[in-house]
Design a protein around this nucleic acid. Structure first.
Lengths: 204, 204
DNA sequence: CTTTGAAATGACTGGTGGGTCATTATTTTG
DNA sequence: CAAAATAATGACCCACCAGTCATTTCAAAG
């Protein structure tokens, strides 16, 4: 139990760096952010960063991977607690918007730095994140499937992907918009859209 | 009429550069592509590129802006030629996938380099492209509106955005996938999803 | 064939920023 | 308190590349 105290401080420092770096990367983008800047904003010196992360890419991917895990777990638990396909879809959309408003910076990163992920020089890190994202959508689709009849003609993975994509676009709009956007309106519209399609129905 | 011959050659050269650069940017990403590489692949020398484009960003944004225009026009004309909301939605989805298969590189750029656009140092170019993208979705939503009843509860701009987003996700999957993906299956699933929602209906 | 001006070249430069490591500060241990 | 171990520092190095410009090539005109 002796290492606990030192290890704990290390974890804490690491987390501080991750949190600060996340904000800066989100604000300035990966390439225009320097390790020097991150260090300053953290209150450490540049060299110290390299005691916690192998290099700039490692720092960047650590942010994405660790937060993505949290995000994924949150969504899945919401899905499991909801009944029926309609309920699950509503919960999925709701949870994504909820997470967005609490984690603006993270979403800015995910959306803006897709290219950084695709063209990373560290194939190990890239693979890890890509796999994680695929697993994420797969698990969503499995959770949705639980609410679907056996003989449904709907491909649950396409459904999951479509919902994620539709939500993403509006999240991006919201993040970039200068004027205010009514998120709850968007939320209910999308939900109704996926449940009812364009056919005239009673609205929620 | 004397300048025509020279001007035409210039246009032609410019286009060759744009086309080649598009491929390289798509393959390697913006930041890992050097002007030297572009020049080599074009069969020109580096200095020559600067006779046609002010700088690297100008080259990059020119690709996006000029092709986006083409893309937008194509979609709109397809929408105008389709009857009814269902027809328009089907046409929109169809046209996007069609354009995708004919312009892989362009979509890779659009998806991967969102961050480059957001964090560009040239605010003029950035504004221009962002406005263009907003206009694009707005025009799509107006075109969809033509097929909608006056009193519809559906917000056409949210509908347009959602379709674009849903399609994007699957396009991204297709672009990154190592194994083959059945695009036509995805196409018909998405179409049916937006028209019917998740409710059991007769399928197309 | 010569002249003239536009087009093309590519060696060179200057700024940048990731990553290192010898040195210094701090903490722990004996 | 001293010695040893650990943490933190930041000046420095160097690879990289966008952009330049003096020089050369080419083509058209006379």
């Amino acid at each position: 139990m002796a290492p606990t105290i030192k290890a704990r401080r290390r974890k804490q420092h690491r987390l501080e760096i991750l949190t600060t770096a996340e904000q800066i990367f989100a604000r300035q983008g990966y390439h225009t952010t320097t390790m020097e800047t991150v260090a300053e904003e953290c209150g450490w010196s540049k060299g110290t960063l390299y005691l916690y992360f192998k290099n700039k890419e490692d720092l960047f991917f650590s942010i994405l991977i660790e937060k993505m895990e949290h995000f994924s777990e949150t969504l899945l638990s919401e899905l499991k607690n909801s009944e029926g396909l309609e309920g699950k879809i509503a919960a999925l959309i709701e949870a994504q918007f909820q997470f967005l408003t609490e984690n603006k910076h993270f979403f800015q990163l995910v959306i803006a730095e897709q290219g950084k992920v695709m063209h990373s020089s560290d194939s190990g890190l890239r693979e890890k994140l890509v796999t994680q994202q695929q697993t994420h959508v797969y698990e969503l689709s499995q959770a949705l499937k639980e609410g679907m009849p056996e003989d449904s003609k709907i491909d649950s993975s396409i459904l999951a992907g479509s919902i994620v994509g539709a939500v993403n676009v509006h999240q991006l709009n919201w993040l970039m918009a200068t004027d205010s956007v009514d998120l709850s309106h968007i939320k209910s519209q999308i939900t109704s859209l996926f449940i009812n399609g364009i056919l005239p129905h009673e609205n929620n």
